[in-house]
Design a protein around this nucleic acid. Structure first.
Lengths: 507, 507
DNA sequence: GTAGACACGTGAGTC
DNA sequence: TGACTCACGTGTCTA
């Protein structure tokens, strides 16, 4: 219904931009998320004394306009050392852009990237401390969702000037669209200075004198001031009814609600520079006021957050823990990879992926090998023992042999081989010897003994295994003996003889 | 200048939000990048009949409000399966990377930048609206700071005003000018109540009555906006830890976490899940999908765009290619992991590290198995050989042994044991001796020799078999020897020594 | 709420 | 130089 705030906002934006640009800022971004006249300002450039002064001056100005306001120029939003910050300059844009549309595209893209980077750099870590942010922010909660008129108004409201196609998010166009910033213009003092010079005018004038600025046009300035003061006054005595009443008063629902920015309109708004409608009707709503306060507190919050961010140690403890844990995990995984590679034939690549696939292949080939071998084994066994299936019976026989205790240092078992016949008696002499001496001696000794009794038995086959070759070795020997036909075979005597042979070797 | 679209856009957004949320969507996002009245709609939740209906209703509504509008609802941008993402196919990448279509790439980059920005704006990372101690600002306090926010449903989504500058960026004709596809809306329009209320209000009211909705209130929207701003400013590394302070009584307790989308959100979401658009919307859906797909899958590549204008377009493509190739690499590696797991016994954990170690163990066991099997096989063959000397193995063995004649009386084989390592070298000394003398002497002689060279080798195990086919006995001996570490091992010399030891015994 | 697992994009290094 | 691999820190999800 009324656009005064916006006008005011635009005025301030222009002024602000002029100030900042006069101090060499290449990038001034005015953010108007907030309800006008609240906005955020970002600028780049070195944060130097001049900027400091500009900031002070601007602050002074704002204070003069809004005495209750603690307008806060957040100084450190300068991305001075930020590598990501991309300085926009017109010529480069021109060079890159082939046509007008594309140029705009580039501009927009760059600006957005800028903003994005800026955000990233400014707030890489979100650590808002333990305090309740809301308390600090003074955020008003919705008072009553069922409040009658406000809902409809908010639903209806939206605003943006839609005709300016070149309206960009962040008025980088301030460099392009603001030839009237007039750093070049030498004497820009507002012509009309009333007798009752308000503080802000003084401040602005002083500032303009310093920097040779052109200040916003006095008309808009006056209007702004008046409105602002009125707004402040009204707000100080405002009651919630003002909001409702003002909403109520909205006579034409779909008429220029164009300039009212509802909080829902969240995108960056364009300050259409040079837009200075003369409608000076005052619209002071509690909502606007609340937004102002909100903005102020927001600025505070911003500063606090920034400070906290810069001061606080970057990684939170959890983050740090996470990091090192992840590191451990990677390390372990790499260890596993290494160990896996050690098992593979040494010719394999040490590349991780190829290690995996070679492992896969190796595994597959091993499986195939096992399958083939086992199959062949089965076949061979079937071929070899149609008469006797060795393994199972052997176990059974051993179990049934009734030998001595298991833990003995020397265990001698003599078991008949099932395939032996009466004419061809074959026995197995099993020895389990725990000996310190190497198995070699043991075997030789037994063999020598067998050689002595070669008239009684002959060696058919033998088998010797030693586990744990160091220190006390565990030797398992099996001698398959054929008992010579006709000889008198005394098994206990034979066993005793064997025992005597190997007894002194057994540990 | 006509603001009807804009005003109505918000209305439509609200209505739409109400509709979708009433159907259980936790996240509804209206995107108004496009030139109004074109916008994009995203919502989560299961794509079910109700959603379908909501979509239809929305279509009808839009049709009623803007008969010329070709509103396009893209169903099913479901962020549920976060692991899935959409991979760009190669051709598309090529197209993007090529120079001739650089402009399109820029456009897409811009799109994704926009998307990122919008994401940040739309999805507050942090709930910052706690209590509102606005007393110092003379703001009306909320009726009850601790009350559960009944209007939180409206807080679940934000809508963009469509008239921000970013609408420019989407002047890509193919995407903005979607074909008219809404002619075949199956259901009748929502009842339009005449007189003063606008159609959207009527529709909303009717719908609210149907679904018992609570429409958004401006206050809540204020809060949302404020939160959004703060979120944007404090985003970039969102950690939910900040909610500790306000967790006690969160003003919007049911604000779902799923609704937080940080710019670092990495995985591209597959929004095709459960997509079952009605045939009438199929075409437009597909078209919008293709654009969306590109945009979404690219929105993470903001750095690309950043480089794009710091440097030339070269590193852009390289970076992009790098990213893509890295993705491919990861994919391939994971594939390898998966394939490897498929080879392992199915009980193994699907954890990557444990997969590796279990693979290692499995491999080791397989090797042992192979060794054992082959050994046994050798044994069996040796047993079988004299019986069936015609077998192929003998020939093969003899051929492989590199010995001179086939019918030699002595065959010496030295083969490394596969399970031996560099540190622990184990070899098999195989002897096939056709001798008249009994095997006993042969074995003893070999053992004595081994005893002599015990500084070089130690006996691990041995095996001896003798068959007596006819006249001469056929002896097969296998000695498994461990080569002592540090000793100089000369295999040919050893072989020659063995040969000399047993030569005179061989027939 | 915390520990672990994964995927991501990116910088660095290597051939 | 470019193609490629790897490590890193971070974000997200799950148990």
């Amino acid at each position: 219904m009324d656009t005064t705030f916006l006008v005011d906002d635009v005025t301030r934006a222009n002024f602000l931009r002029s100030v900042m640009q006069s101090f060499g800022c290449t990038y001034v971004c005015l953010w108007s998320y907030l309800q006008p006249p609240n906005c955020l300002l970002f600028w780049d450039g070195l944060y130097n004394e001049e900027n400091n002064q500009a900031q002070r001056l601007f602050h002074q100005y704002c204070q003069s306009v809004f005495p209750v306001s603690n307008y806060d120029c957040v100084p450190g939003l300068a991305f001075k050392n930020s590598q990501q910050y991309i300085e926009l300059n017109e010529s480069e844009l021109q060079r890159l852009a082939s046509n007008e549309t594309q140029r705009q595209f580039y501009q927009e893209a760059r600006i957005k990237i800028n903003m994005e980077m800026e955000m990233r750099n400014l707030f890489p870590v979100q650590d808002l401390s333990g305090q309740s942010p809301a308390r600090e922010l003074n955020l008003p909660l919705p008072t009553d969702p069922n409040r009658p008129s406000s809902s409809s108004s908010s639903l209806r409201s939206l605003s943006m000037d839609s005709q300016d196609s070149s309206s960009l998010m962040f008025n980088i166009p301030s460099t392009t669209h603001l030839p009237e910033t007039l750093k070049e213009v030498p004497h820009p003092l507002p012509p009309i200075i009333p007798t009752t010079t308000s503080p802000h005018q003084q401040a602005m004038r002083a500032f303009a004198q310093i920097r040779n600025l052109q200040l916003p046009t006095p008309e808009s300035e006056d209007a702004v001031m008046t409105r602002a003061i009125l707004a402040v006054l009204t707000a100080s005595s405002s009651s919630p009814s003002s909001s409702t009443s003002s909403s109520h008063h909205q006579p034409q629902p779909n008429l220029p609600a164009a300039y009212r920015i509802t909080p829902k309109a969240s995108a960056f708004k364009n300050y259409n520079l040079g837009l200075a409608p003369s409608t000076s009707q005052m619209r002071t709503s509690l909502r606007a006021q609340s937004m102002l306060k909100r903005a102020i507190s927001f600025y505070k919050r911003l500063n606090v957050a920034r400070r906290e961010h810069t001061l606080a140690s970057r990684p939170t403890s959890t983050q740090l823990h996470h990091m090192i844990s992840e590191r451990k995990r990677r390390e372990k995984l790499n260890e596993s990879f290494l160990a896996l590679r050690s098992l593979l034939p040494p010719g394999t690549k040490k590349d991780k992926a190829s290690l995996l696939i070679s492992t896969r292949e190796h595994l597959r080939s091993l499986k195939a090998q096992v399958a083939e071998l086992s199959e062949r084994n089965q076949k061979l066994e079937a071929q070899l023992l149609p008469a006797a299936s060795t393994s199972t019976e052997e176990a059974a026989v051993e179990a049934a042999s009734g030998s001595t205790a298991a833990n003995q240092r020397l265990d001698i078992r003599i078991t008949p081989v099932p395939e032996s016949t009466l004419e061809d008696r074959i026995i197995d002499l099993g020895l389990i010897v725990t000996a310190e001496s190497p198995m070699l001696d043991l075997v030789i000794r037994v063999l020598e003994f067998l050689k002595q009794v070669r008239n009684n038995v002959s060696l058919v086959s033998m088998e010797a295994n030693s586990r744990i070759p160091e220190s006390a070795s565990f030797n398992h020997l099996i001698f398959r003996l054929r008992i010579i036909q006709g000889s008198d075979w005394d098994e206990p005597a034979f066993r005793e003889a064997v025992r005597r042979v190997v007894a002194d070797l057994a540990q």
